[in-house]
Design a protein around this nucleic acid. Structure first.
Lengths: 124, 124
DNA sequence: CTCCCATGATTACGCCTGTAATATACTACC
DNA sequence: GGTAGTATATTACAGGCGTAATCATGGGAG
């Protein structure tokens, strides 16, 4: 199955659904209200498009729908990352990592975690 | 100055110009011929759009133009990366890195390089 | 029974993208 | 001086995206 293409705005909607599901449109709208000043109709449009794309499914609940993700966050992250690295770093993930590690602000905990992940890699 | 928005296809054209500049349209078309099966007119369209966006500048050279990047690769990478991390990882670069390190195939040299970069980070 | 309101469905619209084709201008050759 | 090539400039067109407004429908308030 090919993952549906998810736009920037749609991604925010997915984030809400990945955090909790199922949710009605009102709840999704409420969850987004803090971050984005979208008209409620706009959010409904995104939900519709996501359904049409197969990224979200729904079941009827009385007079409304309950929406839930139809694709996993992990898969989507994977796909987005792949396309990002391929675009910007010509597929060279190593180059990307080096650049990011040098540039990002990392907590001590993250550094520890990254070291550990690298150890694992080194063993292969 | 706000960086222009560069699309996927346009990014490939920029890559060619970042590698060597200035170049005439023919040279850019030739450079891309191996990777993408674009009609030469398509490439010219991208060059035009990039000029219009201010990402590329040109000077006349006889009957043709010589194009060169008007924005630096580093700036563009930075911007693309920022928007990617903010979108997919809600701005949490650390989370992104952990995910990538676990997932990417890395050469021994890259692992060494990353370790070193982490050492530097740890010292701060 | 009737009217309003919320909900989903359909439609709108301008800009961006991918992918070119057509038009115009200039040069180099016969 | 016309003609064939190139080069750039302009135009095309469908599908995606951001941002909503309008339409239709069914259930609850009165």
């Amino acid at each position: 199955m090919v993952l549906p293409q998810i736009s920037d705005s749609e991604w925010e909607v997915m984030t809400v659904l990945w955090a909790r599901a199922p949710q009605g449109a009102q709840e999704v709208i409420a969850a987004l209200a803090g971050r984005r000043r979208w008209n409620s109709r706009t959010v409904r449009t995104f939900l519709n498009r996501l359904v049409k794309k197969g990224a979200v499914s729904y079941v009827a609940d009385g007079n409304r729908y309950l929406y839930r993700p139809a694709v996993s966050r992990e898969q989507c992250i994977h796909e987005e990352s792949r396309s990002f690295v391929s675009r910007v770093f010509a597929g060279d993930a190593g180059a990307m990592l080096v650049q990011f590690v040098q540039q990002a602000r990392l907590s001590a905990e993250e550094i520890r975690q990254l070291r550990k992940a690298l150890e694992e890699k080194g063993k292969e």
